[in-house]
Amino acid sequence: MPDGGALIHARGLTKRFGPLCAVDAIDFDVRKGEAFGFLGPNGAGKSSTMRMIGCVSPVTDGTLRVLGLDPLTDGPAIRGRLGVVPQMDTLDNELTVRENLVIYGRYFGLSRRELRARADDLLEFVQLEERANDPVEPLSGGMKRRLTIARSLVNDPELLLLDEPTTGLDPQARHVVWDRLFRLKQRGVTLVLTTHYMDEAEQLCDRLVIMHQGRIAEEGSPAELIQRLSTREVVELRFAGDTPPVEGVFDGRVARVEELPDRVLLYTDDGDALVPLAHERLGPQSVLVRRSTLEDVFLRLTGRTLVD
C-alpha cells in the first residue's frame, strides 16, 4: 500500500451538504490493530466521517483510502471487509435475533452452512444465546446494541466502525459493550469509533482525534493529550447561589481558570494546595479535587463541554 500500511488514509477529507461543511479538510491515518477514536460533541462531523469511511456517503473533496482502496470505485469490495455499527440500530425487526445474523452474513456472500456455526459463536460472544429465536423488537437497548455488534462481525471484518456504540445505554449496558469491544481489540481487530463520552475514549482508544466544527483540533493518545493540554489536577468548585467573582483570586497559583454555568474549574498540578484558599476567599458549597480528563482537554480546545 502506498500509504505506509495505514488501513485508513485521509488527506483534506471534506464533506459538504449544500452550504454546510460537515467535515472540513481533515487529515488522519488509522493503523492496523489500533483502536482509533473521533471524540467530539454532536455535529462535530464524526458521523459524516464514519459514513464516508463506510462507503455509504460520497466524498465531496480530498483523498480517502480504506484498506488501500478508493471508496468511489471500490465501495462494494471495501464494504465486504468492513464491520459497521451505525449510530441508530438498523436491525431487521421482521426477523429473529438469529435470522438477523444469518441474512446479514448472506449479504456478504457467506453460505448458510458457514453461517449456522458462526451465528452460534457470535450469539455466545455477545451473550444472546438464550434470545436466539426471539423477535428483535422487545430486546432492551443494550441487547440490540450487542446484536448489532455481533452482526457487524459476521464477515470477520478487518476493520470495525462503531458510531457512538454506547450512546443511550445505561451504565451497566455500556460496560458490557466496552468489555466486548475490549476483547475484540485484544484479538487484533482494528477499531474506529466515535463518541462524545470522554470515559469511553479513555477506556478504548489507543489514539484519538478531537473534532470540533468539522475540523481536527488535536491528535494523540488520551494520556498524551491530557499531559500536553491540561494540568495534572483540577479543583472543581460549586456554589449554592451565584458564582462570586473569581478573577485575580488565584493569580499565579493556577495554570488556568474555567468558569462554567454550574461550577468553576481551577487547573493546577497540586489541587490540595488550593483548597484552603478557595474556602477562605470564595466560600464554595463543595470542593472536589480530581485528575484531568479528556473533558478538560476538550474544554480547553473549544471552550465547550462535550455533553451538554
Partner: peptide, 11 residues
C-alpha cells in the same frame, strides 16, 4: 424500518 440502510453497509 431502515432495512436498506443496513443492506447498503454490506457489499
Amino acid at each position: 424500518a431502515k432495512v436498506y440502510d443496513a443492506v447498503l453497509a454490506t457489499p
